[in-house]
Every structure is written in structure tokens, then in C-alpha cells.
């Protein structure tokens, strides 16, 4: 049976269509979830897409975190539901305390969009299990507030527990501490990533097909997971 992957649309979500397309190309069925609807409609995994939810007012992700659908997602994540937060979705996951740390304004204070090489460092997560440890992938990065920060103890813990999922290679586009591009929770089902794997799933429109691995990983994870 085809896996059903929910993609949440908040007011101001922008890459929700792209995330749904990536899910489809990976072979799963995308299910659109609405921020105001506190139902997950039986999806097997959830993607929080990029964008500027609620205009990024107050603080990126700070308002989205209180959306009715988020309550369900936080609960389900605790039960093992795979959740991928991309860019704004990563910010929301941090605001919702599903992931530690915060994403702050890029150090150079500019929005930046470029094709970025990442090194995948944790391949045990629900979203990266099809990659090889140390594998380098090319994924677009585009953000204004993508500088990952956390206190030293948190950073050390992330490193020690193997929860740094990906790092920037060949230049850090936003000043993130320890070149962190993606992290995961202790269980490995919740991943937040600043670059945009959903923009690297078609040869015509992306710099590579490397992004597809994130979406095929969750399918592999779901097949292996207890029903």
C-alpha cells in the first residue's frame, strides 16, 4: 500500500506544492493538511514545508507552532511519526521544542539562495537512511534566517549523540554553528533541515536529484516500521 505523507499548509507556506511533488516523485501519496484542521487524516509521515508562515511575524515559526494541526503533530511525533521540517518547517520544529536550538538571521544579514553541498552525517534517521555516511549531496539552500544556534552543551550533545544529520561543506551559507544544516531528535523520527531537498528531485528544475533520498528514506523507514 502506498504510504501517505502529509504536507501542511500554513498561511504563508510557499514550498508546500514542491514538497507534495517531491513526495509524489518518491512514490508516495501526498496528503494536504491544513493548519487550522486539528486532524492528521491518518498520514504515515508529515512534512512541514518552507515558506514564511504567518509572514514570519514575531519570530519565524513562533505563530505556526500554535496552529491546531501542530498540537496533533507534536503528539504523533512523540509516538514515532516521521516528521521532516524544511527551512520554515525546521524553524517551526524548534519553536515547538521538537528539536533543540533556534534558527536566527543569517550572519551576513542577506537572504541567500545558492546550490549547496552538504555532508550527510547521520544515516539512521527516518529521513536519511538511504544515504551513505559521509555522502556529499547538492541541495539548494535559500533562507534569510537559517543560522543555526544553540548553547555549547546542546551542540556538544548533538555531536555526541550523532544527531547532526547534515553539515554545510565548501562554505557555510548563513553562519550556522558548527556548519550545521540539519539535526534530528533522539529517536531519529523528527528531522529539521535548512536547505531544500524538495527542490532537488527533478533534473529539469533542480541542481541534482539528491533531494529525493530524503523522501525515499521515509518510505523505506515506513516499510520497516511496525504497522
Amino acid at each position: 500500500m502506498t504510504a501517505r505523507v502529509g504536507v501542511v499548509t500554513f498561511p504563508g507556506s510557499l514550498d508546500d506544492g514542491d514538497a507534495a511533488r517531491a513526495v509524489r516523485i518518491a512514490g508516495a501519496e501526498p496528503v494536504r493538511l491544513w493548519h487550522g484542521d486539528p486532524e492528521l487524516h491518518g498520514v504515515d509521515a508529515v512534512v512541514l514545508p518552507g515558506g514564511f508562515s504567518y509572514g514570519d511575524y514575531l519570530r519565524c515559526g513562533a505563530i505556526a507552532r500554535f496552529a491546531p494541526v501542530m498540537e496533533k503533530i507534536v503528539d504523533a511525533a512523540a509516538g514515532g511519526l516521521p516528521v521532516l521540517g524544511i527551512c520554515n518547517g525546521f524553524q517551526i520544529l524548534c519553536e515547538a521544542h521538537l528539536l533543540p536550538g533556534a534558527l536566527t538571521r543569517n550572519q551576513h544579514l542577506h537572504f541567500r539562495n545558492r546550490d549547496q553541498i552538504l555532508r550527510i552525517e547521520a544515516t539512521g534517521t527516518a529521513w536519511t537512511n538511504t544515504f551513505q555516511p559521509g555522502q556529499e549531496v547538492l541541495i539548494p539552500v535559500k533562507n534569510g534566517e537559517g543560522c543555526y544556534v544553540a548553547d555549547t552543551a546542546t551542540l556538544d550533545a548533538l555531536e555526541a549523540e550523532g544527531r547532526v544529520v547534515a553539515r554545510y561543506v565548501g562554505g557555510n551559507p548563513n553562519g550556522s554553528q558548527r556548519d550545521i544544516a540539519a539535526i534530528t531528535n533522539p529517536a531519529g523520527n523528527v528531522v529539521g533541515i535548512m536547505p531544500h531537498p524538495e527542490h532537488a528531485v527533478e533534473a529539469l528544475t533542480g541542481p541534482s536529484l539528491d533531494g529525493l533520498g530524503f523522501f525515499t528514506s521515509v518510505l523505506k523507514h515506513l516499510v520497516g516500521a511496525p504497522a
Binding site: Q107, H108, L109, H110, G170, G171, N172, S176, Q177, D179
Partner: peptide
């Protein structure tokens, strides 16, 4: 200025200013 084409030095918290290329 501001945006160096290929690198921004990463920094630990609190050292942000120094890191802007």
C-alpha cells in the same frame, strides 16, 4: 560588501559579528 561570494565563517554563539566575511 556583506555577502562574500563563497564563504561565511561559522561562529559559536556570541561571536557572530566577527564571522561576517
Amino acid at each position: 560588501g556583506g555577502v562574500a561570494p563563497f564563504e561565511v565563517t561559522p561562529a559559536e554563539a556570541g561571536a557572530a559579528d566577527e564571522a561576517v566575511a
